[in-house]
Design a protein around this nucleic acid. Structure first.
Length: 590
RNA sequence: GCCAGCGUAGCUCAGUGGUAGAGCAGCGGUUUCGUAAACCGCGGGUCGUAGGUUCAAAUCCUAUCGCUGGCUCCA
């Protein structure tokens, strides 16, 4: 959302479509409405964004949801009046006078390169704006104000907080309503709702915010994902380790976490005069394992993997269901390689992502290269400008050579190096980094990591941090929405629900359950004294892939009547046949 | 962390100054049933927590905790 907003500001509209222009104009109309209600309002910016627009205001009082209909009403009047948007170019000084009472506009004026300031005017409202706009307010289609939010001026938390009003706008009322209906639909897929309904995970006030408890069904999913990760990592030459959750302060001083990452760490505990921190990342421990013995170039690359449990003190307002938590289990690994191995290793990690994404049928994502910004050297980023440029270019090369497309975003890197993130969207449209692949040229130095190269000399390895399966928390949160709770059979917490028609069939059903479990299949008998219809309905709501109805016929000839989650009824078949095809489906992760 | 809104039973929600409600879930019973909700009955909440105002607070005020929508920040 934030990124898109910025894009909308920097690339205004000249070649953009009419819809975007109309949305931008709608934001001006909203500003005009706010001005008429609050004559002392000060104006920030008001761009078009995906599906709509917003405008930021500094107002004498806080807005409440009740204000929105009033503003909407005023907007309708302005639209009905069909006021023309008048465009003028003013010399900077004249614009200064015009916006003398508008400190935010004055700040923007200071940054305009040439001496001309574009101004748009409709009715009483005059705004500093590059445009373009629709010809008159009457051209604005159907809109709705959707929310009020605080937003820092220019997105900087050190600046004043303005009040932002969000709106959506479409050409026609039906399109607007369709959009609103889509949002309602998306809410049903929200992982927080599904997670509760399907009993995947929970939070508890006494345990603490951002600290999920995985319920048995979530636990089953975690087991499957870890199994997959272990198979893949074994296949691709990783070795697995386990490391402690807490370590002495010294380690994180050395790693650079304390100078650069302390804000996101739980405060230390002190024992016998020594401070211990809970780990926010696994890397320092893996580095210690790498340097636990001397390494030859023949050993490289060394790929050390661990499902590491980390704790990060995310600020309270940043927590979001499973997608942003304080305790997390990370699909972590560190690859130590030589410079000439880097491209190959980096690319093969990206290919590993793609292999995983194929398994999960993840198609909607984009890759993002995050680079440093020179102004952050020594503050946000470790200070070695030359290495930043060099490694950033190595990543670009690795991506380009393998024809992998990506967006490049400056000033978003990790403190120790550039990274490729895989961005996905949650059901409600919020963007998240799912997987990440990061270069690290810094900790190699600080941990004095080395290997003996072909010439018999010591050389520093490059480090790749990677987490293709993200954390269990974020991945499963994402998958819940991705599958709408209907996990593919291999991942489904309950794969088979046995539904006895009457109590006398429970014994036979239990026998089948035992056979299924013997094959590692998650099966359970619904042995409650309820009608079969109810059991079917609940299995459907639990999104169990297979329901086996067991009655007299089935018990007599050891067959099963199969109902799929889709509602499809498969003709009765021998239990052995079902077992075979189910095992095959699970093995294929279909 | 910041701005705003919201916290009533396990879940979804009604109740805005006068003794806490519904549906689902749960429990007990009846029913033994063929592919998305059988029937009858019962229990369950110091209304997030702590103060305050009032004869009287779920309802008004303050603080605090949590959640939600954004901002900031991120796997």
């Amino acid at each position: 959302m934030r990124l898109r907003a910025i894009v909308a500001i920097i690339n205004p509209v000249n070649k953009a479509d009419k819809l975007e222009t109309m949305r931008h104009s709608a934001s001006h109309v909203m500003a005009g409405a706010v001005l008429s209600l609050f004559p002392d309002a000060r104006f920030g910016i008001g761009p078009a964004i995906e599906d709509g627009f917003y405008y930021d205001f500094d107002l004498p009082r806080s807005l409440t949801p009740e204000d929105l209909p009033v503003i909407e009403e005023r907007m309708r009047e302005i639209i009905k009046a069909d006021l023309p948007f008048r465009h003028r170019e003013l010399p900077r000084d004249a614009a200064r006078k015009l916006f003398a009472a508008q400190p935010f506009k004055l700040e923007l004026l200071d940054e305009i390169a040439d001496d001309k300031a574009g101004v748009y005017e409709q009715g009483d409202f005059v705004d500093l704006c590059r445009g373009p706009h629709v010809a008159s307010t009457g051209e604005i289609g159907a809109f709705k104000l959707t929310g009020i939010a605080g937003a820092y001026w220019r997105g900087d938390e050190h600046n004043a907080m303005l009040q932002r009003i969000y709106g959506v706008a479409f050409k026609s009322q039906p399109e607007l309503e369709e959009h609103l209906a889509r949002l309602e639909e998306a809410k049903k897929r929200d992982h927080r709702k599904l997670g509760r309904e399907l009993e995947i995970y929970m939070f508890d006030d006494e345990v603490g915010p951002g600290l999920p408890l995985w319920l048995p069904r979530g636990g089953a999913i975690i087991e499957e994902i870890e199994k997959l990760a272990k198979e893949m990592e074994f296949k691709y030459g990783y070795v697995r380790v386990r490391t402690p959750h807490i370590t002495k302060e010294d380690l994180f001083k050395r790693s650079g976490h304390l100078p650069y990452y302390a804000d996101s760490m739980y405060p230390p505990m002190e024992l016998e005069g020594v401070k211990y921190y809970v780990k926010p990342m696994n890397c320092p421990m893996h580095h210690k394992i790498f340097s636990s013995r001397s390494r030859s170039y023949r050993d490289l690359p060394v790929r050390i993997a661990e499902y590491g449990e980390c704790y990060r003190y995310e600020k309270s307002g940043e927590l979001f269901g499973l997608m942003r938590v304080r305790s997390m289990q990370m699909n972590d690994a560190h690859i130590y390689c030589s410079e000439d191995q880097f491209e190959q290793e980096f690319a093969s990690v990206v290919f590993l992502y793609l292999e995983y994404f194929k398994i999960f049928n993840i198609t909607e994502y984009y890759m993002r290269l995050s680079t440093h910004h020179p102004s952050g050297l020594g503050k946000k980023y470790v200070g070695n400008g030359a290495m930043w440029l060099k490694t950033e270019d190595m990543v670009r090369q690795a991506m380009k050579k393998n024809n992998i497309t990506y967006d490049e975003v400056p000033d978003e890197a990790a403190f120790y190096g550039p990274k490729i993130d895989v961005q996905v969207k949650s059901a409600i449209g919020r963007e998240f980094t799912l997987a990440t692949n990061q270069v690290d040229f810094s900790q190699s130095e600080s941990f004095d990591l080395k290997f003996i190269n072909r010439e018999g000399k010591e050389e520093r390895p490059l480090i790749i941090h990677r987490a293709p399966l993200s954390t269990h928390e974020r991945l499963i949160g994402f998958l819940l929405e991705h599958y709408g709770g209907a996990f593919p059979t291999w991942l489904a917490p309950v794969q088979v629900r046995l539904v006895p028609v009457a109590d006398r069939h429970i014994g036979h059903a239990r026998g089948l359950e035992a056979e299924l479990k013997g094959r590692g299949i998650r099966a359970e008998v619904d042995d409650r004294s309820e009608r079969m219809n109810l059991k079917i309905r609940q299995a459907q709501m639990d999104k169990v892939p297979y329901m086996l109805v067991i009655g007299d016929k089935e018990a007599a000839d050891n067959s099963v009547s199969v109902r799929r989650r889709s509602g499809e009824q498969v003709p009765p078949q021998p239990f052995a046949a079902f077992l075979a095809s189910l095992s095959e489906e699970i093995a294929a992760k279909a």
